[in-house]
Design a binder for these strands. Structure first.
Length: 427
RNA sequence: GUGGCUGUAGCUCAAUUGGUUAGAGCACCGGACUGUGGCUCCGGGGGUUGCGGGUUCAAUUCCCGUCAGCCACCCCA
């Protein structure tokens, strides 16, 4: 058995590359519809760029090495730090808000599993320099429109939205202390995947005050019902202010035509520590796959990384889970057949003529193949047929001498005899 | 990083309680049907059974290790 690709890395044979290109072309098209401009950065970055944001513990999950100039470097695990740096360098010169997207290949040194490899392509869409909730709505609409563009519906995919400011407000309202927040966040984040008593057990550990623990339990009961949450906290101006923002967000999403894809779910937290406001995730409705997409607002990140204080928000959508989902729903389009014309001759000495005709067809921008070695006509047709070619231009010795060829459509076997010049001019 | 399951041709699989030159279909290459493909028929290439040890007269089969894949955990893109 020959050596395969490294664990978690993929070889893209033509069929798989066609799928990858299809996904990426949809990404680009949808991003373009929303007026986003494409950018890119280096796949290799100083390790420091990622340490700054996420701390030293992240290093274990990165592809890192020391280069020949003694620099500590890493293959990029995400695009946001690169984006932050690029924007920060020219922040003053750019019109705000900045609407950019990118399709980087990202790397992560972790054991692979379903929907998760060591390398993937990810659509990144970001808006920088706009604090209004309309920007949050616009961003999520892009992600949902990608789902629509690949043929998925609001019955297939759900967007769950939350807000860390709202979650922080309700937790502090019931008495959870600031230092206890991270652990409570982590516990709440898992409620979808763990039994309720496991979550409560974690809350028990994280929160010292018994009254506050009961408050957390109450919140969990209304985590997906914004009205019930509002009723529960109607006497807290701080919470009600955040709920007003959330309602505005949901109204904007309705206005953008994607409201029926969206569910409020306060338990969506997202692992990344830098999110500061609205966060969202896209899941398949059957819960069969991992998250398709995740993102949110990270208003403090640019000042952390680039020293420029600009509000920002963005999302990432990987190709791996999306491809798995589309394959399982039979939504991957059949790959385009490559070659349009096959030039064949009924006389093996006519290879130069075949080449000449092929060249003239190619000058007309057609894709053309022919047998590179002498073969019987039967063999040439057999090859053309199994290669999926649509038409054969057949050169018959006597006919070709008079400037005529036969164009055969392989699908139905029909043939028509035409003057070569006229045929080429008709293309 | 931890645990479970799996590993025979490019793919899907087979090989009686461990038994002699490890088979088939599909795919690929070629031939026939006397120079127009798809159908049919015939032939061919391709495996040190993931790799390395061990038990045995004998290992694809049993045991151990290792690597890889899948699944879950951790963590998250």
């Amino acid at each position: 058995m020959s050596q395969g690709a490294l664990p978690g890395f993929r070889d893209f044979y033509p069929e798989q590359l066609a799928t990858r290109n299809y996904i990426i072309s949809v990404w680009r098209d949808v991003a373009r519809r929303y007026g986003f401009l494409e950018y890119d950065g280096p796949p290799l970055e100083p390790l420091e760029l990622y340490k700054k944001k996420s701390g030293d513990e992240i290093v274990g999950q990165l592809y890192t090495f020391t280069d020949k100039g003694e620099r500590e470097v890493a293959l990029r695990p995400e695009m946001t730090p690169t984006l932050a740096r690029m924007v920060a360098a020219k922040a003053n010169a750019m019109r705000k808000p900045i609407r950019w997207f990118s399709v980087p290949q990202l790397f992560r040194y972790e054991r692979q599993q379903k929907g998760r490899l060591r390398e993937h392509f990810q659509l990144n869409v970001d808006i920088i320099g706009e604090a209004s909730v309309a920007a949050d709505a616009e961003l999520l609409a892009v992600a949902i429109d990608v789902m629509r563009a690949v043929g998925l519906t609001s019955r297939d995919v759900r967007a769950r939205v939350s807000d860390r400011r709202l979650l922080t407000a309700v937790l502090s309202e019931v008495g959870v202390r600031k230092a206890e927040m991270p652990d409570v966040f982590a516990a709440i984040d898992k409620t979808g995947r763990e039994p309720r008593d496991v979550t409560l057990g974690k809350v028990e550990k994280a929160v010292s005050n018994a009254e506050a623990r009961r408050g957390v339990a109450r919140i969990l009961n209304v985590a997906t019902d914004l009205n019930a949450l509002a009723a529960e906290f109607r006497n807290s101006p701080k919470v009600m202010e955040e709920i007003t923002h959330m309602r505005e967000y949901l109204n904007f999403l309705d206005a953008l035509g994607v409201g029926d894809w969206v569910d409020f779910d306060l338990s969506i937290v997202r692992g990344l520590a830098y999110y500061t406001g609205k966060v969202f995730e896209l899941f398949d409705a059957q819960g069969e796959f991992r998250a398709i997409c995740g993102g949110g607002r990270y208003d403090d990140l640019l000042s952390t990384i680039g020293g420029v204080d600009l509000p920002a928000l963005g999302f990432g959508m990987g190709d791996v889970v999306l491809t798995e989902l589309l394959r399982s729903r039979n939504l991957l389009p059949a790959p385009e057949l490559g070659t349009e014309y096959w030039v064949a001759a009924d006389d093996e000495s006519m290879l130069p003529d075949v080449m000449t005709v092929a060249g003239r067809l190619r000058a007309k921008s057609r894709s053309v193949e022919y047998a590179l070695k002498s073969q019987t006509l039967a063999r040439q047709l057999k090859t053309a047929s199994s290669a999926g070619v649509r038409n054969v231009v057949l050169l018959r010795r006597d006919d070709y001498a008079n400037g005529h060829v036969t164009v055969k459509t392989l699908a139905d076997g029909s043939e028509r005899r035409v003057a070569l010049d006229a045929f080429l001019n008709s293309l």
